[in-house]
Amino acid sequence: MSETAQVRSETRATASFDVIVQEYEAPIGRYLYSMVGDYEVSQDLSQDTFISAYKAYDPEKIHNLSAWLYRIATNKAMSYFRRKKVLSWVQLDKLTDAGRDPSVESHGEWVATSHSVQQALDQLEPDQRACLLLKAAGFSHEEIADQLGCSPGAARTRLSRARDAFRAHYGGGREMEGNS
């Protein structure tokens, strides 16, 4: 391939990846925010996700782009949680509120609901969180299993545990309202 042709093809590759980023930055960004509950961190992870994806991107090998991107994002989030564990001296209650996007606070009522969803998510183990969020993003048990590196059976078990745990935290308040 001549140098010019190579440059052209690289430009095309970049351009097509640009489209991928534009299409997926919102869902991946939202997924990562829901995972970590921290705006800054989610941005870093999201950026990391797309850079890693770009480096490994091979259209011929990737059959399900969305699942593949979520898998990379999930791994980035899990790595983040593992790293964070090292910092055990950071107070946990501070971490859960850390770095929330202040602009979100002005959204009034929506914040009231979403906050409790995020707070409930924050209470779950990271991989339970991933399970619920990947399910909500529309992936099948098989795809979730692939993204989390476990068997479909384990993914089902984990999802069902995650669901119960989420209900205990998120639904707890709701049930009390219902009873009163």
Binding site: E25, V117, Q118
Partner: peptide, 29 residues
């Protein structure tokens, strides 16, 4: 209750804040 959880999560993941990354990422790429 399960259905409400499901709906809450589904709507949350569509509305959660996200940080746009395209500019930085394309720069890096």
């Amino acid at each position: 209750a399960y259905e409400q959880d499901e709906q809450a999560l589904n709507s949350y993941v569509r509305q959660a804040p996200y940080a746009p990354v395209a500019r930085n990422v394309i720069d890096e790429i």
